[in-house]
Design a protein around this nucleic acid. Structure first.
Lengths: 338, 338
DNA sequence: GCGTGGTTGGAAAGCGCTTTCCAGCGCTGC
DNA sequence: GCAGCGCTGGAAAGCGCTTTCCAACCACGC
């Protein structure tokens, strides 16, 4: 048990070379090492099963091979898709990703960032949606500054405004386009199941949707707010039904919320789409097989994760870059003509 | 830009104490430090925004605050649920989890373990299901040994046999109980959409299911293998339909596969459950709202992640421990009487 | 023959922290 | 009054690696 780890020094000694030479061979430094020594070191390292101590390397180089990824809830397919994109790119670059989950508590974001800073992570992707909570935002901004000061890069998915690289999905444009598509189906009265009002993503989608209705000369929708989860959608839908709204079409700002809403509607005997049309946002792959198939705005989630990771790993200049990705309205069986 | 990081030495100097004292104050060592100095150090650290360098700490202590988590595909809700459990426990213990994804390539598992070893992760949870691929298994076993030799702990979810702590879901028992429940519904001819034959989880579920049928004196099922994914389920179901099987009930060894299969059945005009009953395994939370609701064997996935993390973080003796968690059959609308 | 420049190998100084070891001090007990 | 103890603070030795700096050496050209 606990046979101590093989160190570079042991490899060097065994191979009959100096520490410096061994290091140069095993990490591709700029310096040349003769074919013979190089070969010998490589072989010895292999034989001894040498694995460099990442902490020591990080300390000596003052930069680690860690990339942070902060999400609210890895169980939510929205985040797990983004996570898949981020890890794919990071692993391809030979980096390890450390996953932090906030459980939707804004203050956790700053804490996690601080931990990541302690690890001297070279970059971090913040996928949690920004809130409008002033205190949390300012604490977060401070941490982001500290992190970048220290030489790390930060990218956000959704929501810029923090001076970082950002991948911005077309939340507003998507909501607007969706509204237009739905009005073209003949709907005149709409309801929206919005997320918590402090979440910027939710607000943007809602704002876009309202704008789209206005474009079509249709009255603003009834809005019921709920948590950004399946249960939030369920409850919001129940509330909507209780309110005796005359809406014929409801827009849930998230596919996951839409799932909950559909469950609520079914439970109350409301047929989809005959009695009520419903649409979501995100186009979560895991949910594509639901019946009736959910109309939604497709976002390339994995790709967004890849882009964010790319931004943050590509070195990049001093300027904050912003990549916009468009949402694409896809109408399926959950929305019908009215 | 790049204002160098505040070091312990700076804090010590500023507070007018030695490095040793500062260290003792800021990390809760066993040694006592006078109230006054302690207070002074704490305040200075706060003022300067000191964050300890995790790499340096890891190096000096010869143990890091990292916990590894290896999954096949974080996008698969089975894994993301487990991941949620693991991260919850790890974060509660003040540790950071580094997430590695194999993309279902067995050899990646060993690579990731090696990376984790380089980081001196103090523990790792292997959630990817074991295969029967001999070469990969032996390479993996070697890495696991190396990892534990070095003082790290390893836990597996599903599948023991590797001398590590393990959380074992009742795959076999669950399959068997499900088979019994389905025969009680009156079904006589079954089909199974099995995973790739080298995956132990898939084999166990299938074996249990067969045993259950045997218990009931029913003929063995037709088995069609497919990938352990939604698309795998879709294709396997298509193949099954093409084979003109007379089965009235089909068991997909995974909820995710069942989703694919249901899509295939619907596409071919097969009504569920009137024409064909279908059941899955796992009871993925995200999929609970599908219509018709999927009969399945419920596994407490998040809890399994928590247990695994608990095993691996609780120190634990030298003996490999095994925790069994039972699956619970839940019959819903996707299976009907025959 | 010897200075020059270009290589290659090694010694050693860190990187930021923990922890041992020792010195100093105020007590207690005889 | 003093040996002996328990306690606190600091000096310093690492932890395993990278990287500078220097020495040694080779081949040249004059």
């Amino acid at each position: 048990m606990s046979a101590r780890q093989v160190t570079l020094a042991e490899v060097a000694k065994q191979a009959g070379v100096s520490l410096a030479t061994a290091s140069r061979v095993l990490n591709g430094s700029t310096r040349q090492v003769s074919e013979e020594l190089s070969e010998r070191v490589l072989r010895t390292a292999e034989e001894l099963g040498y694995v460099p101590n990442a902490s020591a390397q990080a300390l000596a180089r003052n930069s680690s091979s860690l990339v942070g990824l902060v999400v609210h809830d890895i169980t939510d397919p929205y985040f797990s898709c983004i996570a898949a994109g981020v890890t794919r790119v990071a692993e391809a670059a030979g980096l390890s990703v450390v996953l932090g989950t906030t459980g939707r508590r804004p203050e956790r974001e700053a804490e996690l960032l601080s931990t990541l800073r302690a690890h001297r992570a070279r970059a971090v992707v913040l996928a949690g949606s920004r809130t409008t909570d002033r205190a949390a935002q300012s604490r977060l901004a401070t941490e982001i500054d500290a992190f970048t000061e220290q030489g790390g890069r930060v990218a956000c998915v959704s929501q810029a405004k923090l001076g970082t690289d950002t991948v911005v999905p077309g939340n507003r444009a998507g909501g607007r386009a969706l509204a237009r598509a739905l009005t073209e189906l003949g709907h005149k009265k709409f309801a929206v199941l919005g997320g918590p009002s402090e979440l910027v993503v939710a607000r943007d989608r809602l704002a876009g949707f309202k704008a789209g209705l206005t474009d079509a000369g249709i009255a603003p929708p009834v809005v019921v707010n709920g948590a950004f989860t399946r249960d939030g959608g369920y409850e919001a839908a129940m509330e909507l039904l209780a309110s005796k709204s005359r809406a014929t079409c409801v827009f849930a700002v998230t596919d996951v919320m839409a799932m909950g809403a559909m469950a609520a509607l079914r439970e109350r005997g409301v047929r989809i789409p005959e009695d009520m049309s419903i649409a979501g946002f995100d186009d979560i792959p895991t949910l594509r097989d639901t019946v009736p198939a959910l109309s939604t705005v497709r976002l390339p989630l994995e790709e967004m994760g890849e882009i964010a990771a790319g931004l943050v790993l590509d070195g990049g200049g001093d300027e904050a870059r912003t990549v916009r990705v468009a949402g694409e309205v896809v109408l399926r069986a959950s929305t019908a003509h009215n």
